[in-house]
């Protein structure tokens, strides 16, 4: 295999793994629910996106062509991440979960 492609795939894999890990660390150590919500919606989505791109690059470097399922997974993840974040934030507001005391402003109630 072409060494440039090899480095590229390895780099994408490591980037993806690192972002997934950072998302999980954020989920584990952020102080309240609303701040915890930020890490998984962004970092984890990007991490999995990078891993999927690496998989596509690897498959096409092996001469297997691009699998359409991978494209669908990526599109689907990027479309659903904000929707699920939004609906979880709504349920948290409804249940009035604890916020960290430094938070400025407050959610309305309707």
């Amino acid at each position: 295999m072409n060494p440039v492609v090899e480095y590229l795939i390895a780099g994408l894999l490591l980037t993806g793994g690192a972002f997934t890990l950072i998302g999980a660390i954020g989920l584990a150590r952020m102080p309240d629910f609303y701040t915890r919500l930020h890490a998984p919606t962004k970092a984890t989505t990007v991490g999995v996106g990078a891993i999927i791109i690496a998989s596509v690059a690897y498959a096409s470097s092996q001469g297997a062509g691009i699998d359409t399922a991978e494209v669908l997974i990526t599109v689907f993840l990027f479309m659903t991440a904000p929707v699920s974040a939004n609906i979880m934030a709504k349920s948290a507001m409804h249940l009035d979960v604890k916020r960290m005391p430094e938070t400025r402003g407050k959610p309305w109630d309707q």
Binding site: F19, I25, M30, K42, P107
Partner: peptide, 25 residues
């Protein structure tokens, strides 16, 4: 912007500084 966003969130997650959250209308 998503890539930039992830980098900035990653920096904040890994730093020991406390975040300063706010609700904005």
């Amino acid at each position: 912007d998503i890539v930039v966003a992830s980098l900035s969130v990653a920096r904040l997650v890994l730093s020991t500084r406390k975040p300063r959250p706010a609700f904005i209308s």
